[in-house]
Every structure is written in structure tokens, then in C-alpha cells.
């Protein structure tokens, strides 16, 4: 019977990443990488709860604005009365304007997807630090870390624009169930992006100061990258479930 005596030649045990001593690990994997994957597994449940709530409350708001095109036929309105139609503020028009702005969100989605490409290239830069060909600026980790952070910030800019536009059209977190669940869900995602941008900028600062290189730095950037990509895949789900499907 084989045993799991994989040997870690250089385990960086502990939570600081500066352990120099060869600690034994069972699997030969890094502690921190196991922890981040467990964390990501847990985050799946967090976003599952938020997304479920959004979907459960979809179409239950009693006043507008609504996310998608909304026909003001009496049968569509929750209250099913003329009063209910009036309360929605759409008695005048037959069809109410959808509030979600697909063109703009498509752009921000594209930006976030591309930030993931920048992130893998940044990791590649750290892994190949000092190797021939990687000393050029557009192949190095500094450029791509900065690009990732920049695109993350751009995504946040789009989100700020979207939120402001919604408020101008009369949708706040207090307006209706759609507003509450939409702002909370996308706000949670935005908070994750913000934390990621902060993390990326910290890595960039370290990179500028002393250069990110070596095994431990690869791990540190890898963990940040895993987080970043996860935030990206959450957005892939949100874009489809919340924006595109009615």
C-alpha cells in the first residue's frame, strides 16, 4: 500500500510567507494555496445566496423601475389592479423602459474578462523573472500587474457610472426589491473587485520596490490571481443571470 509521503523540498509553512525552514507537509502543497481554494469554495456559497435572493425577488417589486422591459398590462402587475399599474408609474406608456444598460455592461464585462488575461500574464512574468525575453517591459510582471489593477479600476468606474445612472432614473437601494437585491449583489461583487485592486496595487508596490521573484513571490501572486479570476467568474455568472436573461 502506497503512502502519501510526498516530500516538500521547500515548504513555506506559516502565514507570513517568510519561513525559511523546510517544514514537512503531507502533500507537498503550500498551506496558503490550500487555504485560498477552501476560501473560494466558501465564496461560492456566499454568491449563491446573493444570486438566489436576486432571482427569487425578480418580478416581485411593486413599484418601478424594473430591470428589463416591462409591459404594463394589468395582468403583469403584482397587485393586478388599476391602482397597482398606476403605482408602477407606467400608466402613461404601454411598455416601461428597462433600466439595465446592456451595451455599457457588455463593455465592463469585456474589460473584466481581459483583466484576467492580464493577470495570468503578470503571473507568467513573475515566474519567468530574469529569464531572457522577460526583461522587456511588456512581458514583465510590473506592466501586467498595473494593467490588471487598471482594468479592475475601470470596471469599478463602469459600476459607479451604472449606479449613478440608476439613481438618476429613480432606482436606489431603498426603492424596491429589485433595487435592494440588485445593489446588494453587484455591490458585494464590486467590494470584492475593490479588495482585489488594493491587493494588486500592494503587489505592484512590492514589485517596484524589490522586484517579485522566486518561489514564494510566485505563490503570493498566484494566490492573488486565483482570487482575481474567481471574482471574474462570479461576474460571468452575474452578467448572464442578472443582465441578459429576463
Amino acid at each position: 500500500m502506497a503512502t502519501a509521503v510526498a516530500h516538500a523540498s521547500d515548504g513555506h509553512a506559516g502565514d507570513s510567507g517568510h519561513g525559511e525552514h523546510a517544514h514537512y507537509t503531507t502533500t507537498g502543497l503550500e498551506h496558503r494555496k490550500i487555504a485560498i481554494w477552501a476560501f473560494i469554495g466558501s465564496e461560492c456559497m456566499l454568491f449563491a445566496s446573493l444570486i438566489s435572493t436576486y432571482l427569487i425577488y425578480k418580478g416581485r417589486s411593486k413599484v418601478g423601475p424594473m430591470p428589463h422591459e416591462f409591459s404594463c398590462k394589468v395582468s403583469n402587475v403584482v397587485a393586478s389592479t388599476a391602482d397597482g399599474v398606476a403605482a408602477l408609474g407606467c400608466a402613461a406608456a404601454d411598455v416601461m423602459k428597462p433600466i439595465l444598460d446592456i451595451p455599457v455592461t457588455s463593455q465592463s464585462t469585456f474589460v473584466l474578462l481581459m483583466s484576467s488575461l492580464a493577470m495570468v500574464l503578470a503571473l507568467e512574468g513573475v515566474e519567468n523573472h530574469g529569464k531572457p525575453g522577460y526583461d522587456r517591459w511588456f512581458k514583465g510582471s510590473k506592466f501586467w500587474l498595473a494593467m490588471t489593477a487598471l482594468m479592475g479600476a475601470a470596471f469599478l468606474g463602469y459600476q459607479a457610472y451604472e449606479f449613478t445612472a440608476f439613481v438618476h432614473e429613480g432606482l436606489t437601494i431603498k426603492t424596491n426589491l429589485f433595487g435592494s437585491s440588485f445593489f446588494t449583489l453587484t455591490g458585494f461583487h464590486g467590494a470584492h473587485v475593490s479588495a482585489g485592486v488594493l491587493w494588486l496595487l500592494t503587489l505592484l508596490a512590492i514589485d517596484m520596490k524589490r522586484g517579485l521573484k522566486g518561489k514564494n513571490d510566485v505563490l503570493v501572486v498566484d494566490i492573488c490571481a486565483l482570487y482575481w479570476h474567481f471574482v471574474d467568474v462570479v461576474w460571468i455568472a452575474i452578467f448572464t443571470l442578472i443582465y441578459l436573461i429576463q
Binding site: T53, I56, Y57, R60, S61, K62, V78, I173, K174, N176, L177, G179, S180, S181, F183, T184
Partner: peptide, 17 residues
């Protein structure tokens, strides 16, 4: 959020479940 920021997640009058 309901208690502090006026969201309606548990606000039955607003259609909450």
C-alpha cells in the same frame, strides 16, 4: 441593510417573501 440602510429584503409591504 434593512435595519440601517432602508433596503426592503424583509419588507412585506414591498412584496418581500
Amino acid at each position: 441593510f434593512d435595519r440601517f440602510f432602508g433596503t426592503q429584503f424583509y419588507e412585506l409591504a414591498a412584496g418581500a417573501d
